[in-house]
Design a protein around this nucleic acid. Sequence first.
DNA 1: GCCTATTAGCTTGTCTCACAAATTAACTCC
DNA 2: GGAGTTAATTTGTGAGACAAGCTAATAGGC
Lengths: 242, 242
Amino acid sequence: MAAGKRTRPAHLMLAQQLGVAIVTGRHQPGSVLPGEIEQAETLGVSRSVVREMLRTLAAKGLVEGRPKTGTRVRDRHDWNLLDPELLGWMFEGAPPLPFVHSLFQLRMIVEPAAAEIAAVKRTARHLSAMGHALETMSTHGLASEIGRAADQEFHSVILDSTGNELLVSLSASISAAVRWTTFFKYRHEKHPRNPIPEHRALFEAIANGDPAAAGEATRALVNQAHLDTEAALEIEARLATN
Amino acid sequence: MAAGKRTRPAHLMLAQQLGVAIVTGRHQPGSVLPGEIEQAETLGVSRSVVREMLRTLAAKGLVEGRPKTGTRVRDRHDWNLLDPELLGWMFEGAPPLPFVHSLFQLRMIVEPAAAEIAAVKRTARHLSAMGHALETMSTHGLASEIGRAADQEFHSVILDSTGNELLVSLSASISAAVRWTTFFKYRHEKHPRNPIPEHRALFEAIANGDPAAAGEATRALVNQAHLDTEAALEIEARLATN
DNA sequence: GCCTATTAGCTTGTCTCACAAATTAACTCC
DNA sequence: GGAGTTAATTTGTGAGACAAGCTAATAGGC
């Protein structure tokens, strides 16, 4: 089942914990974190675990440590926002609205362009995989976990078929975030809208090798997702103020 | 001066060393790295250092460790290619040609779109910073270190003025790579071409609030850089075969 | 003889204690 | 009062040990 990864190492769970605390603003940039021994005592682990956790966060640009000074939270500008894990942490709390806008603006730039390239460079194997994902989506619907996974798979294959490693990597990052926006969407409204027809149109455009149509179909899809997500976030905000 | 960061911690230098070895293919994905104690002996450091180095690489998606199995190199698909450090490591050896193509394709997608947004949302402060960078470029030329830094600053401010955090982060990553392609360009030809006029055109378009012109100017700039870089890489390849 | 269950071992994960290096801050001397 | 020096604090590194988890080999049952 979706049950547990056996027992995840302690330093990973603590890294996620501290990472969320940082990206959600509970530790302001420029502030110094408690010393390693102090954190070790507070968390009930050894200093080794604390240090390995800090190395993980440092690799993502979140923190920076120097002798005597201590470990400081780096400026937001230095964070590695496109790191998939970091994007996930962003959505642990209520995702800040400007950030959601940035995300969809980026999607609106990258995904249509990628679809245009995919319409030219896709192979039969890619079309097969996309078709399969599309059928799974139709069958299970986007309200189910399986359907959402198929949705991600569908878009992932499109990026894959561009043959551009960097676009694929960017896709992985964006997907990590999109997964959460989709989660928010379906948390309240059961069926915001059914994007299956648009997905089918996109699939046909790519299959026909029509870049312009593929780009346009993707723009329509992303725009629709953006509107739905904003509506869901407004509901979320209304519930929070009650 | 540009001199050294005092004495960088050992685990960082070793992480870079192993990271380069992995991204340049000296450790194939799926292969298992030597055990931690063995690496510690080989490198002449303690196991703590080896482990912290591995945590850094694991945070970037390069490796994955499990008890008994050992630490394996993850599939290239899982790498965090947009990590600035990782991109830098990519260019330690001879940058693979398909990768350079991917990079410029990504630039061609993102930067024109960003310029269009910047033409609308830029403030006086942004224009001032851009103008200053432009003047520095004109004065020193792109053959100098100062000129290249100003070039990066110029493009960085454009991304900054979009007000989109994710675009800024993406910019930082791309810049890390562009820095190296520019380095290759100027290693052989002293003056491939002088892109100052195009930069000035881009600046004016953004100042005038003309998105279409800004996008077109950026497309011209990226295309020119792409051609120059390819020419430089061909020279590089010719020299390598001699 | 084949399949299953157990056990042995190897590797990462964690803990403890210790010292070195680096940098900030206080302090002393001029 | 200012500049050089010293001291204290924090990260960086080291060494050794035990625990936990996983793979594989081995022994037992059918």
